[in-house]
Design a protein around this nucleic acid. Structure first.
Length: 910
RNA sequence: GCGGACGUGGCGGAAUUGGUAGACGCAAGGGACUUAAAAUCCCUCGAUCUCUGAUCGUACGGGUUCGAUUCCCGUCGUCCGCACCA
């Protein structure tokens, strides 16, 4: 066992059959498929449509093993669906805008465009060697002007429709990437790409109004039956709906700054209103600003918490701090009850109203705050059955359901009833022209900030004129193309620094004006590419209404496959974009872009390290050999035998060096072996551990199939396939037909590992019933248990063997398409396997006429009963009670009960 | 802190609605073939014991059931998402 090179393919064999050589075979078939345009879909093909899509790659330079797994899975589904008679659309393109190109451009003094297209060329070559059944005729990159032109058109359409707007807001600023980020792109307070602590800045930027669809995006999750629950839950949490009450608290006149009358708060727990003991408002709250005008101490406090609070991450860990403004509010249900108003560092200005009422007994954070500042703690909800007179809250808030106490007219109610009672009463009281409280649904979701201060993206097609303001670029002037030359000499956005690009005349008045030098978030590019694939040739419009969706259209994507890391960002944005496209006339009916979603696991690998601690150095699997020494796996450097420590199994990463290069695998073993390996063993949604031994196992299987087929082929020349009727031929047909049924079901359910196990079983059975080698070598063993007779293939059995092998070849084709075609042509088949339909199984062959029923006594298996499949319950019971071990267990007594689960099991209760 | 998922041999994992636990693969051990190696083929492979059989066994402790890997309650552990969201 080693992680190093492999010589398998260069070995010479004196045996009759040559080893299968993927290096010769795979390019041959890839070329033949391309020439036949086998995988190009036609929009006017009358067969039922099936749209199979994998998340398209970013052209980083080289493919990684995760691509191999993702695209193999999609290819299995695409090839299978073709065999099932569908007109399959299986396109590929490039998510080609983004920061790595800019960084490469800056560091190596190249044009980001050249860098990107060179990478695409390299990766395209690599991916083509995998034999994926993609429709390359529809390929595009999002950095093609012919693509982003339409995106710019849709941006303007969204603007016109009120789905995009320019507004000033507090935004996340990434100080390393020097750009703003959307909320979704801030992870643990850091930029999703740079990892830098994100700062808050007030800027005027473009937003897509995704919040206007918050309710709809939430509700429609329940219609996505073929999405993982996990992803739906993550989206639901992200949208973060809550139901509450907006309550206006009058300020006590003597304590309020001049002109200030009330404080409006949002709460989801109005039932706890009699447990309120303080109000807390954000540092940015207007009332805070008023209060600080003549309170230097407060002003200093605000300055202090704002300094600590520029970075989101710091807010999260900061100690809870408050400052009593001296302002008092009056309790809505008791004019004589006033509560202090604090400025607190834990209250966020951009959620709710930026103000809360604190109920210490029902909220841990409020309790901590109250204990710190000596504020009252009044229990208002207690568990069922507790004693209201003695129930107390000291260190731990009570947040569960229960009974209302210490709450006057709410006492004895459930919190839910109390919620409604408070809502009803306060809604009925008017202050000025408005009720004192109203029900309000609040979302956590914020609008999608799409402006980026970057040069390698789709330009925002807006011109700013001193007189006319923000003016859309005229449709006939689209696309707004990026300039050919970009200079990274100066800091900041090269588009902004460009000497001429931004200077244009106002489309409205003709006066000199300036372009928007921001580009769109690259997640905009990937929010509609799936729609563009349906007709990438349309120059006039983003989509062609006749084919994009609806009766004769492609969308929604039937099966989408990609990484779970896009569970929120890409998938939520795409769902919004699809709705926005429908609203602006770019789609007919579809609102959900992806009917079926599958999130595949990662490819992980052991790590290898020399030395430990700070001196430890990771080494690549290719440099290491692993041997079994005294039952223990030991690793050492191949070069000089230096001992190497075997570390944890982790996601492949450059820093841990636990990467395997797909190119090496493809060169050593071929695409089919790589494809087969990434599909076997682990369920597709879980991580798969890459091991050299596993790859070699996959390669052994490739050779086994080849040997089986190629050695039987001469004996099968001129034989027509047919089902076997008896003996080993019948058994062979049973196995093949059963596999045809099961493998299809497994692929439909995206359980490729199980389908592969079935195929192993089938090959094992074929090998037992028709031993390879017997056809060519003179040393066969004639036997009644296989299809041979007298040392060669019994002619009576030949049709069944031919059928089983043909079925096998068609069934392995989705996973190992090159080997399948090589086998197919060796068997004398015409055309390509990809043109063959999926084998139809004979239902009579997949059920046995006799079944083996396990027999339990008192729930423990004691033996089997072989009986006719259609035997009735009475016959089964009789036969069971006659069994030796049952008789013995019953000791002559009658059974208390006999439970017969038809076709499954019998349990005798003694 | 909140929400969710998961826990099965030496390893990856099967077991479709509660019905034979360990399919299939990997690793390991033994054998055949070979001058030798590779390749290939055959056999063994959850644990224990009084070994032609029996007992135990799906993280741990309970429960429901004729029957539990599967359902319920509790404990422990691992992973993921969100996180001062009022």
């Amino acid at each position: 066992m080693s992680g190093g090179s492999c010589l398998l393919l260069s070995e010479k064999h004196p045996m009759a059959t040559e080893r299968y050589n993927p290096r010769a075979s795979e390019p041959k078939w890839q070329k033949a498929w391309a020439e036949k345009k086998l995988f190009e879909a036609h929009n006017d093909d009358p067969r039922p449509k099936y749209y199979m899509l994998e998340m398209f790659p970013y052209p980083s330079g080289r493919i990684h093993i995760g691509h191999v797994r993702n695209y193999t899975m999609g290819d299995v589904v695409a090839r299978y669906k073709r065999a099932k008679g569908f007109n399959v659309l299986h396109p590929i393109g490039w998510d080609a805008f983004g920061l790595p190109a800019e960084n490469a451009a800056r560091d190596n003094n190249v044009n980001p465009r050249d860098w990107t297209y060179a990478n695409i060329k390299t990766m395209k070559g690599q991916l083509k060697s995998m034999g994926l059944s993609w429709d390359w005729a529809r390929e595009f990159a999002t950095c093609d002007a012919s693509y982003y032109k339409h995106q710019q058109k849709m941006f303007l359409d969204f603007w016109k429709a009120g789905l995009a707007e320019r507004k000033s807001a507090k935004v996340n600023w990434d100080p390393v990437d020097m750009t703003v980020l959307a909320n979704e792109q801030v992870i643990d307070g850091r930029g999703w790409r740079s990892g830098a602590l994100v700062e808050q800045r007030d800027l005027t930027q473009w937003f897509f109004k995704i919040t206007s669809m918050a309710q709809e995006l939430l509700d429609s999750l329940s219609t996505l039956e073929r999405w993982p629950d996990k992803v739906k839950l993550m989206q639901a949490n992200w949208i973060g709906r809550s139901e509450g009450l907006l309550i206006r608290w009058p300020l006590a006149a003597a304590t309020a700054p001049a002109g200030e009358r009330e404080l409006e708060v949002y709460t989801t727990r109005p039932d706890t209103i009699f447990g309120a003991s303080f109000m807390a408002i954000a540092a940015d709250h207007p009332l805070t600003k008023r209060a600080a005008e003549d309170n230097a101490e407060l002003a200093a406090f605000i300055k202090d918490i704002k300094r600590g609070g520029t970075a989101t991450a710091e807010i999260e860990t900061a100690e809870k701090k408050g400052f009593d403004t001296g302002i008092r509010v009056v309790h809505p249900f008791d004019e004589s009850w006033t509560l202090p108003v604090y400025v607190a560092n834990f209250v966020l200005m951009d959620y709710g109203t930026g103000a809360i009422f604190g109920c210490p007994s029902g909220d841990q954070r409020d309790l901590d705050f109250a204990n710190k500042y000596g504020l009252p703690v009044i229990p208002v909800v207690m568990p069922q059955g507790a004693d209201a007179r003695t129930f107390q809250i000291t260190e731990e808030a009570y947040t569960d359901d229960g009974v209302m106490i210490n709450s006057r007219f709410l006492d004895g109610m459930t919190p839910q009833a109390a919620f409604d009672e408070v809502a009803t009463r306060l809604s009925g009281i008017a202050i000025g022209n408005r009720p004192q409280a109203e029900r309000k649904v609040q979302f956590r979701l914020r609008d999608w900030l799409v402006s980026r201060q970057r040069c390698w993206g789709a330009p925002i097609p807006v011109i700013y004129c001193d007189d006319c303001g923000a003016v859309p670029v005229r449709a006939e002037n689209l696309p707004v193309e990026l300039p050919d030359h970009l200079s990274f000499d100066k800091p900041g956005n090269p588009l902004d620094n460009h000497p001429t690009w931004k200077h244009v005349d106002c489309p409205q008045c003709g006066k000199p004006a300036r372009r928007d030098t921001d580009t769109m978030d690259t997640f905009v590019d990937s929010s509609w590419y799936f729609a563009r694939f349906t007709d990438p040739w349309n120059e006039a419009a983003p989509t062609t209404m006749a084919v994009v969706d609806g009766k004769n259209g492609w969308l929604p994507v039937n099966q989408y496959i990609g990484g779970v890391e896009h569970a929120i960002l890409h998938l939520l944005y795409s769902r919004f974009f699809t709705r926005a496209m429908k609203a602006t006339g770019h789609l007919n009916v579809v609102e959900e872009p992806f009917d079926g979603l599958f999130t595949q696991g990662m490819v992980v690998h052991e790590t290898y390290r020399i030395g430990s601690g700070a001196n430890g150095q990771y080494v690549t699997p290719a440099e290491v050999r692993v041997d079994m020494i005294d039952g223990e796996r030991k690793a050492a450097l191949i070069s000089d035998g230096t001992p190497v420590e075997i570390g944890a199994i982790e996601k492949m990463s450059k820093s841990k060096k636990n990467v395997v290069d797909p190119d090496d695998i493809l060169a050593n073993y071929g695409a089919d072996t790589a494809r087969w390996f990434v599909l076997s063993d682990s369920p597709p949604d879980r991580d798969v551990i890459w091991t050299e031994a596993g790859v070699e196992g996959a390669h052994r299987f490739v050779q086994r199939v080849w040997r089986q087929v190629s050695e039987a082929a001469p004996a099968l020349a001129g034989v027509s396939p047919a089902q076997g009727v008896s003996g080993p031929a019948l058994e062979l047909s049973r196995m093949a037909h059963r596999a045809a049924k099961q493998v299809a079901e497994d692929i439909e359910r995206i359980a490729f590992n199980k389908g592969i196990a079935r195929l192993y079983e089938l090959v094992n059975a074929i090998q037992t019933l028709a031993p390879a080698g017997a056809f060519t070598a003179g040393k066969s063993e004639p036997s009644g248990s296989n299809v041979l007779g007298g040392g060669s293939l019994n002619p009576e059995n030949a049709p069944a063997l031919r059928q089983a092998l043909e079925m096998l070849v068609i069934m392995i084709a989705p996973m190992m398409p090159h080997l399948a075609d090589e086998c197919w042509s060796t068997l004398g088949g015409t055309g390509f396997v990809a043109e063959r339909p999926w084998p139809v199984y004979d239902p009579a062959l997949v059920v046995d006429s006799e079944i083996v029923l396990p027999v339990q006594v008192n729930g423990k298996k004691r033996g089997d009963l072989t009986i006719a499949r259609d035997a009735d319950q009475g016959a089964v019971e009789k036969a069971v009670l006659a069994l030796d071990f049952v008789q013995k267990a019953l000791e002559g007594k009658a059974p208390r009960k006999v439970i017969i689960v038809p076709q499954r099991i019998v349990n005798v209760v003694a």
